[in-house]
């Protein structure tokens, strides 16, 4: 019984991490006009860990990960990804770095004009240029099986439900074997059962593909399930950083409002 419980807990909990940082952010600042979204953010993502970034809407969580992949340019501060400063990379260097990073968008961002198969092949053909047609087909089938949607191969995104879109989007992200995963609100807009399935998938991806991940969310159930470590953003700054227990024991009213 005990052994069974331990095995079950291993499957449903994130794997252990190392102390090597894959992303290091120092004194990050980002404003939109007069509105200062990120005031002074400093944090690290360690190799192999799932770092959950919590915060209320508009606290700059999504801006933070968009700065990491260079979709937004920070005003000041330093973002090192695999020891390369994202802010000073040229287009070619940034593209090379992006090949190691997977980004799961809040909306899924599947290409509407392409089938699921074409959606998955799109990054694969551009990033893994040396793959043969057979290898591409095998890889696409493998990731679709991993997300449990092998039969959706020829469907259009408009034929998929919200949860299926998230799964396909996740499959498109992992198809190129990224080393870092950035999840932008992976469970937003999903029912509790599908949310749990997505949370389980996040842990599975971490274990199977040995990824280090930043998970942006305000879904505490997902955060509890997937996190090795958590960070709370408030007013553009890091309010608290620590393990799940540190957040549960905190007396800060903002944090307690999340964990009640």
């Amino acid at each position: 019984m005990n052994t069974e419980q331990t095995e079950q807990s291993d499957i449903n909990s994130p794997s252990k991490t190392t102390n090597e940082a894959v992303i290091e952010i120092k004194n990050l600042k980002k404003s939109f006009g007069q509105q200062e979204v990120l005031k002074n953010v400093t944090l690290k993502l360690l190799k192999g860990e799932n770092l959950v970034v919590l915060g209320k809407s508009g606290s700059g969580k999504s801006v933070l990960i968009k700065c990491i992949v260079g979709l937004l340019k920070s005003d000041s501060g330093k973002i090192d990804v695999f020891n390369k400063n994202v802010n000073i990379l040229n287009r070619k260097e940034l593209d090379e770095l992006r090949q190691k990073i997977g980004f799961l968008f809040q909306s899924g961002a599947l290409y509407d004009s392409m089938t699921v198969k074409q959606n998955l092949e799109f990054p694969l053909r551009r990033i893994k240029k040396d793959l043969t047609e057979k290898e591409i087909e095998e890889k696409v089938t493998e990731v679709l099986e991993n997300v449990g949607l092998a039969d959706a191969l020829h469907k259009m995104p408009s034929q998929l439900s919200g949860g299926m879109r998230k799964r396909i989007s996740l499959a498109r992200t992992i198809v190129v074997d990224p080393m870092i995963m950035l999840y932008d609100e992976p469970t937003t807009g999903l029912d509790p059962v599908t949310s749990d399935e997505i949370s389980a998938l996040i842990i599975e991806v971490q274990k199977k593909y040995k990824t280090s991940s930043i998970i942006i969310t305000h879904d505490i159930k997902c955060a509890r399930k997937t996190a090795n470590r958590m960070v709370m953003l408030a007013e553009g700054e890091v309010l608290l950083e620590g393990k799940t227990a540190d957040f549960e024991n905190s007396t800060n009213p903002i944090i307690t409002s999340f964990f009640q």
Binding site: K66, V69, L71, D95, E96, R98, Q99, I101, F103, F105, Q106, S107, A109, L110, Y111, D112, F122, P123, R126, I127, V176
Partner: peptide
Amino acid sequence: TEQIDAMEVSS
């Protein structure tokens, strides 16, 4: 729907 951003991050 962030499809252009998705294209950008997939190099």
